[in-house]
Amino acid sequence: MYRYVVKRLLMLLLVILGVSFLIYAIMDLAPGDPVWQILGEDATQEEYEAMRAELGFDRPLIIRYGDYMWGLLHGDLGYSYKYSMDVMELYLSRLPATLLLALSATIVSTLISLPLGIYAALRQGSWQDNVTAEFSVLGLATPNFWVGLMLIIIFSLHLGWFHSGGFTSWQDVILPAITVGTGHTALTTRTTRSSMIDVIRQDYLMLARAKGVSEKKVIRRHALKNALIPIITATGIQFTGSLGGSVITESVFSWPGVGRLVVDAIKSQDIDTVTGSIIMTAMITSIILLIVDLLYAFVDPRIKAQYNK
């Protein structure tokens, strides 16, 4: 088990190295010049050269990258030109909102899709099954942008139950969480359904029923537990996806999350902010995926045995 964790953490280092170099190179190759972005277009050529040298943009890419990584080793994610502050400080100020939204969205999506998926699997081929299928397709097909605005119009404008945006109290997460969560429901419902269908056809369930175990217990104890692996995977992927990918929802609800930060930074060529934030998100994502993998072991003793090899 420990060897597995250590192996995965070493792989994480490789991932960070790869991700950081890729992002750094892409930002460098992308059109536009960050120095002009910082100086403004009325700056003179001399001011431009001076600033370019001051920021080190006159050195080759590989040296700048090496410098950046050296700083990273010392916990320095770089400096944001756009906001004139440390990227670490900037990122950490956004992280809580992002984590809260990702977590709440995952809870929303799990609360809806788990029962729905199981229900559909048990009534495979019936009209109830089809209703859930249509619902999940609807959730997947409706753009987050539209769902978000509709929720705001109904629950903020007309009912006045929630704020229309911003993050000032915990209630503010509800509407964005529903927006992101319903988008994810489709995949998790479908995964739950197909995974359950696979399991309930197994012989050991028939045996359990033959032994007189109640249907509820058969489903909960025997079927669901074995069907959980793909569900956990789907949920884990969606959780990590919402860490950096809820840009549209964050925009609609003015949610101070990481996604919006990165997109704005890309637009203004704030290289350090982009690289630093993506490295942090990659790190958090890898760690969460590792935790998900470790969860398998708790759910499935066979996998635990494999880890221990």
Binding site: L149, I152, I153, S156, L157, G160, H163, S164, G165, V252, F253, S254
Partner: peptide
Amino acid sequence: ARVIALQT
């Protein structure tokens, strides 16, 4: 969203 926030 900005206009809605004004309306609410």
